[in-house]
Structures are given as structure tokens and as C-alpha cells.
Design a protein around this nucleic acid. Structure first.
Length: 325
DNA sequence: TAGGCCATCTGGTCCT
DNA sequence: AGGACCAGATGGCCTA
């Protein structure tokens, strides 16, 4: 990793050498409050009342900078006590343009790059802090599970959507947060239809699969991996921590739908032999198997794509689907 | 050891 | 000119 501090010998005085508009006053995360206050309601002599701020190096040599809000800043204080008096620059006709040596130009560019890096770092810290607040506001199963960034955003969406549906419901909803998380981690975007299939249709064997026709055998495989359940586990499987038989049933029905689409003979066999290990039928899917199935399946991507169920083809209602079997 | 996740750096673009 | 935002590149850490 590149590190500017390794190049800067500190011999260059930017206050002297940079243009008057380049104050060298860098806004960092640690100084956000400072600068925010400056912008909002502080001016002139008010700034002098602000407490002194520590000034650690922009980037420790060969290592990451610790994100410790409130502990200090990489920003030199403008008009700090004991600072050199400002140089007065000539303006207009009296202004004499100085030519800068190549080494000065390099140093100026390096300084600007350092400032830009600092701002970018702080920007990302702010973004991550907001994401962390969102993460803390969401329930997880088990409780100490830490969702990734993308999972946090997806689960937040599904969670909010589900709460809206709960508010609109007449009290017949069998809401299950664990199940919602399971579905989210498999890459599903919860829609009204899926919400109904999951929590209102009382777990009709095919309701989930019908509401999520894009949920493939590969996705099932991935979802099962999420819960460390062997795909060769006899049906019904034992209940490992974090994975209920209820969820197994949900995913199995989805698998059956996928099998029906891509492997009709396997599907028929599975119908006749409900305890048969599914991987013996399907296994890892080859390219030739993928006709009509997601090309960007989560089987090939650790993080499944965020599927918009509304974009999937409309299928027959669950009860009609069930009647055919 | 490969792959996922993450933080950081970097240069480009747009806006003020 | 400088800051905000963005996306690509890179390297570290962790886990299966």
C-alpha cells in the first residue's frame, strides 16, 4: 500500500508556498464537528474559543490509521496560538506570479492528494458509521451474527417492508424474523406476494416456490450452505442450531420447483422418494443444465444477486399449483 | 489456499 | 480551485 508520509520529510512549508486559497485546513472525521460548527454558527473570534486539537500524522507509516472519533485530527489548526502571522499577498497589478520548481509542484500535488485521501477516508467513515447504526437497529439470528454491508441494506429493506405489511395486516400474520433473515440472505427481495406466501398462507408446501419462481435449485444449495446443513441429510433433517425444519421445508419446496423446471425426471423421482438426498439428483449444475435458470445464480456467487421478484414471470396461484399434484 | 469482505488509495467527473 | 462523489485497484484479514 502506498503511503505518502514516507515521502514527506516535513521540510516544505505549505503555508508559505501554496496559494492563499489553499489554507491547508483539512476537514477530517475528527474535525467534522469543528468545521461543521464553523460553517453553521461560528465566525471570526468564535473560532479562537475552540479547544486545541491534536495533530497525529495523516497516515502512520506502513499501517492503517485507527478510527477513533474525538481523539485528534490530522488537521493543523488555522490561526492556532503561536502560529506564524499570515503573509500578505499582493493582488491585481502588484501581484507577481512566482514560478515553482518541479520539486515544489510535486510537493504541492502530494499535499493535495493527502488532503483528498483524508477527506475520502472520513467520508467512508461517516458512511460506515451510518451503516453500523442501521446494523444495530436490525434484529439478527443468532443475536451475535454480523451482517455484511450488502446484507444489512437488504435486510433493512425486507424488514421495513415486512413491518409495513404487519401494520396493514388484520392480525393473522405468522411473522417470523428468523425466516425473514433466511430469505434475505438467499438474495430475495420481499414483495407483498412473497410476504403473504411466507407468513400468511400458512406454509402451503408450494406457496413459497410459487411466489418466488426465480428461486432455483442452485439458490437452494447456497441457502443450505448458509446453515451448514449437509445436502445429503435425510429428509426430514435433524434441526441444527439456526436452521429449523420449517425453513428446510421452505427451501425444499423451492428446490422442487427448480427441479421441475430444469430436471423433470429428477423432480418426478423426488416426488416418489421424499427421503432421497437431493444432491444425488441435482448436484452442481453444469452450463448445459442452466436453460431457463438464472445465469447469475448465487451458486456461483457467494453474495446472491438482489432479485426483484416483481420482474419475474407471473405464475399460477399457489392453490392451483398444488392441485396439479 | 482461494474467495469474500473490507479499508484505503487513486484518478476522473461534476458541482459550487 | 477545491470539495464531494464515485468506481477501480490493491492489499490485509478471516474463514471454509
Amino acid at each position: 500500500m502506498s503511503c505518502y508520509s514516507g515521502f514527506d520529510d516535513g521540510s516544505f512549508d505549505f503555508n508559505e508556498s501554496l496559494s492563499s486559497t489553499d489554507s491547508g485546513f483539512e476537514k477530517s472525521y475528527e474535525t467534522t464537528e469543528y468545521t461543521a460548527g464553523y460553517k453553521m454558527n461560528l465566525s471570526g473570534s468564535d473560532l479562537k474559543e475552540l479547544p486545541p486539537v491534536m495533530t497525529p500524522p495523516l497516515m502512520p507509516e506502513g499501517g492503517k490509521i485507527e478510527f477513533t472519533p474525538g481523539l485528534g485530527t490530522s488537521t493543523p489548526i488555522k490561526d492556532a496560538p503561536g502560529a506564524k502571522p499570515k503573509r500578505k499577498y499582493a493582488v491585481g497589478k502588484n501581484r507577481v506570479t512566482r514560478s515553482r520548481s518541479p520539486s515544489q509542484i510535486i510537493r504541492i500535488k502530494r499535499h493535495r492528494r493527502m488532503k483528498a485521501n483524508d477527506r475520502e477516508r472520513n467520508r467512508m467513515h461517516t458512511l460506515n458509521e451510518a451503516l453500523e447504526r442501521l446494523r444495530l437497529a436490525l434484529p439478527t439470528f443468532p443475536e451475535d451474527t454480523k451482517l455484511t454491508k450488502i446484507e444489512t441494506l437488504r435486510f433493512a429493506h425486507n424488514y421495513i417492508f415486512s413491518l409495513e405489511q404487519l401494520l396493514e395486516s388484520d392480525g393473522t400474520v405468522n411473522f417470523d424474523l428468523e425466516k425473514l433473515q433466511s430469505v434475505t440472505l438467499s438474495g430475495e427481495r420481499v414483495t407483498k406476494e412473497l410476504f403473504n406466501a411466507l407468513f400468511i398462507d400458512n406454509l402451503s408446501p408450494y406457496s413459497f416456490a410459487t411466489a418466488t419462481p426465480g428461486f432455483t435449485s442452485q439458490d437452494f444449495y447456497h441457502s443450505m450452505q448458509h446453515y451448514s446443513v449437509s445436502l445429503t441429510t435425510p429428509y426430514p433433517p435433524p434441526e441444527p442450531p439456526g436452521f429449523s425444519k420449517q425453513n428446510y421445508d421452505i427451501f425444499r419446496s423451492a428446490f422442487q420447483t427448480a427441479s421441475r423446471a430444469g430436471h423433470p425426471q429428477s423432480y418426478d423421482y423426488l416426488q416418489q422418494h421424499p427421503g432421497y438426498p437431493m444432491t444425488n439428483l441435482n448436484g452442481p449444475v453444469t452450463a448445459s443444465d442452466q436453460g431457463g435458470i438464472h445465469q447469475s445464480s448465487s451458486f456461483y456467487n457467494q453474495t446472491p444477486p438482489w432479485r426483484e421478484c416483481s420482474e419475474l414471470p407471473i405464475v399460477e396461484p399457489a392453490h392451483q399449483f398444488c392441485e396439479r399434484f
